[in-house]
Amino acid sequence: MTTTATSTDNGAAAPTRPGRRRAARRALPLLVPAALFLAAALAGPWLAPHTIDAPVTATYAAAGDGALLGGDQLGRDVWSRLLHGGGELIGCAFLIGAAVTATAALLGCLAVLRPRAGRILERAADVAILLPSVLGIMLVALAWPDGGRWAVITAAVVLGTPFAVRVVAAAAAPLAAAGYVEAALMRGESSLSITVRELLPNLRGTVTALFGLRFVEAVYIISTAAFLQIGPQPPEADWALMIRENAPGILLNPWAVLAPSAAVALLAITVNLATSALAPRTQAVTSA
């Protein structure tokens, strides 16, 4: 592929607005579950019948009898703890997702407009690929013992950004050869201005999908960290922590493990399906 090719044969054009509306309608059935689940998880603390640290029943008591989902390892109400346990996870995941997406959107466009910066960012992604995120989080948590949640958030942002930059750069590359970007270069616009005015408005689909993906990834990282007891500490109610704490009593009261597991899984799944609905469609296959 030569430079001439990219400069002369660019067919990149945003879908027309009616087309966008049609796509939105198709995506709706996949967006609603995510919205409902997020709303329920955030409203949870106000709906909980008990506080998170008051024992109300026997250790690993079975479901029913004043505790909808039974008791946990200290006889606390699993249902109440479940309702409390989502807010912070969702909040942190949102923060990580937003930070990674915003950084990647800017850096990804910069990588395309400035090839030299692009090569450096590409190398950074090569390096980041070699560090499993779980190990990365352990490292940060170790080196920053009092970091708590912030250590996890920092680690997740640093580790997630290089990959996200690649995604944005790949989507922005064809746009960078579009006539309107070249016209902007010709009149002397700065890279930041081109990014904000010309590129990002046409990358809405990619950026939205990226945010969803990073949110899901953040849920994975935060919950895994919590499971490894990095971040939230007992007696906090946290879904991942609940899974770990109640695992020994899984036979006595399976709900104490199953309910938080299902909550984490549902959070990730609903958001991921919503993301896939918002993602720009790949070209339909035209079969002969």
Binding site: G11, A13, A14, M186, G188, N202
Partner: peptide
């Protein structure tokens, strides 16, 4: 090239589909 020289030379791109930013 500097602001004034950038102003003095302008380009009209080829593809009418991509010559204008679809979002503006």
């Amino acid at each position: 090239r500097g602001r004034d020289r950038q102003r003095r030379i302008q380009l009209i791109p080829q593809n009418p589909l991509a010559t204008l930013n679809p979002s503006r």
